[in-house]
Design a protein around this nucleic acid. Sequence first.
DNA 1: GGTGGATGGTTTCGTTATTGAACCTACGCT
DNA 2: AGCGTAGGTTCAATAACGAAACCATCCACC
Lengths: 177, 177
Amino acid sequence: MRWNKLEDEACSVARTVSVIGDRWTLLILRDCFLRVRRFEEFQARLGVTRPILASRLRKLVKDFVLAKVPYQERPLRYEYRLTQKGLDLYPIVMSIVHWGDVHMAGKKGRPLLHQHVNCGKAFDPVMICSACGEPLSPKHVHVLRGPGATSPRHLPPHLQAAEAKRQRPARSSRSQR
Amino acid sequence: MRWNKLEDEACSVARTVSVIGDRWTLLILRDCFLRVRRFEEFQARLGVTRPILASRLRKLVKDFVLAKVPYQERPLRYEYRLTQKGLDLYPIVMSIVHWGDVHMAGKKGRPLLHQHVNCGKAFDPVMICSACGEPLSPKHVHVLRGPGATSPRHLPPHLQAAEAKRQRPARSSRSQR
DNA sequence: GGTGGATGGTTTCGTTATTGAACCTACGCT
DNA sequence: AGCGTAGGTTCAATAACGAAACCATCCACC
């Protein structure tokens, strides 16, 4: 399956991955949140080749994650800034950082620490339920069919039997494709 | 830069990306959290080619994200199950799903809904500060040098000047490597 | 005792994507 | 005129991927 097919899948992971599911893109975004904005700076920090960097930045701009805004004229120069859509990627980047801190840190400890300006303390990110505020664990989450579900192929296995029934309440219909 | 160099970087994002920073790996993990466990099932659901699937599963096992456990003998067959290290990826997967739900959902809405078993309600994941419990926003987080920091190249730009001073408090020392 | 099915892969070969190095453009400075 | 800076593009060589076929075990049946 090709990259461009991914974004058409009825799956939020697949659609997100079609935008950021590339190692260089993730590293570019890390640097964006560290306030890196210019082509040369990305290139020096990441060690990525220039053609790849150019193509990834182009794609992120096309997907409205970054915006090219001029920071000088004559010669006209642009910098890359996170849009709101891009800023909303913060939980993804933070949870990636945190997993790396916990599971991949060397014996010297984590490379960076995060301090919450509001409370002044060093912290870890914690993911909670928006309804009750409890921390989330995979065992305590049920997955249900949403309004945007289409092909049963993307439903979780435990929902596929139910879906099969939905498709043929009267079995004469040709709607099962 | 090659894949295998990535995990040596003093950056938690780079190290995490060296494990999961591949589009197929992320989709495999999505399915793992939906309780998919067998080769054929991954292959049918993902539409990935068999060699790629085999190589990604092998790598996830090597990195202790998945474990191969036998579910029958004669013929001996294994299934792939998330380890604790793998289960800890849940916040990453959930934040990816949520970003897709918010920014990439079609006009029909999100494909899947999540229900929190503890409280019974449909919910969104929210990332908060472990110290004060407030939701996190990139603007309210300061990044500080951690004990595992090494090359200044990976420090955020605003820390590099400070780092340069650290390296030569008395400029006769040879400690600037 | 040969045939077929299920599961979990590997081989092979042609097409893309990535890498590394060099090159290009527009401007400003001296 | 010549050099430096910023932000790219072009090109040839190499690596990764995709599609299809093939292989290995075991079982069940005829």
